[in-house]
Amino acid sequence: MERKIVAWGLGLGIGAAIALAPIAASAAWEPTRPVEFIIPAGTGGGADQMARTIQGIVTKHKLMTQSMVVVNKSGGAGGEGFLDVKNSKGNPHKIIITLSNLFTTPMATGIPFNWKDLTPVAMLALDEFILWVNAEKPYKTTKEYIEAAKAANGTFKMGGTGSKQEDQIITEAIQKSTGAKFIYIPQRGGGAVAVQLVGNHVDSTVNNPIEAVAHWRAGKVRPLCIFDEQPVHYDEKMVDGMAWKDVPTCKSQGLDVEYLMLRGIFMPGGVDKEAVAFYVELFKKVRATPEWTDLMKNGAFNTTFMAGDDYAKWVAREEKRHEELMKAAGFMAAK
């Protein structure tokens, strides 16, 4: 009965052409069981928001005959999720979305895991980082803020997600670049970090755009600069006539720090090429939907897409970069 309703919606819906594609390519591999989509982070954060949006898109446009089950495995800074995928060698019904903890968790904790234990599928997007302050605070520019932080003499509090992960790496880089000292206060998830900023319990955060956008639009927080080499191109007005593209780069504001984070998909090691190809195609279809475009716009994502060897090479480079960053910050686990 339910199937029928869904099938009707499918036939009439805008995704008809997309939905028929898997039938045309019936010889290729397709999931025969529900696909488990693992998030190595808590609920409400950037990775969680993206994964759940994807779940919605895949279900709504019927991109897969089997269903997609989203599971948060955030234990041990995401180590729980990564080890689970590592130990599911050869299982083509499991995929995982990553954040920088793909690199930082094994480095900081010494748990036996490396991205090479997984099969890279595709890069979905790169996530930006923005320096946010509470809108009630007087500083309007990065310069004013850094001056205030220096004057505060090490009492300014920077909120961030987790410990020895991307947010703390950026904080560390800001300290190096400016000489200002911050107290880094780790929270469990990006959503909680943003709320702490709104409640004035920390002085600034380096939240991903998607994590703070709701508070920005409500006029509670203010973006000072974006940690990228050029401003993003989204020009839709968000609040007070300001759009994402009006957020200047940190470099242009005298804060020479750049950081982008991978939002990519991996599978367990030892899976068939056909299975990987299926998921690459699946995510290409996901990226073609209007819902995905909305998410990208809302969260000011950098929409680079990569798959196959390009992607693997990119990940390898990124791992090197993180190793250097982590070493420089003194975050590596004691051997």
């Binding site: 234990g75 041990g76 800074a77 180590g79 729980e80 904790t109 010494g110 748990i111 410990s163 992960q165």
Partner: peptide, 20 residues
């Protein structure tokens, strides 16, 4: 398991299953 504040593993004594 993992200490949220320092990002360090503690009291796991090297056992993977204690991680969580």
């Amino acid at each position: 398991g993992l200490d949220q504040v320092t990002g360090q593993l503690r009291l796991t004594f090297g056992f993977e299953s204690m991680l969580n």
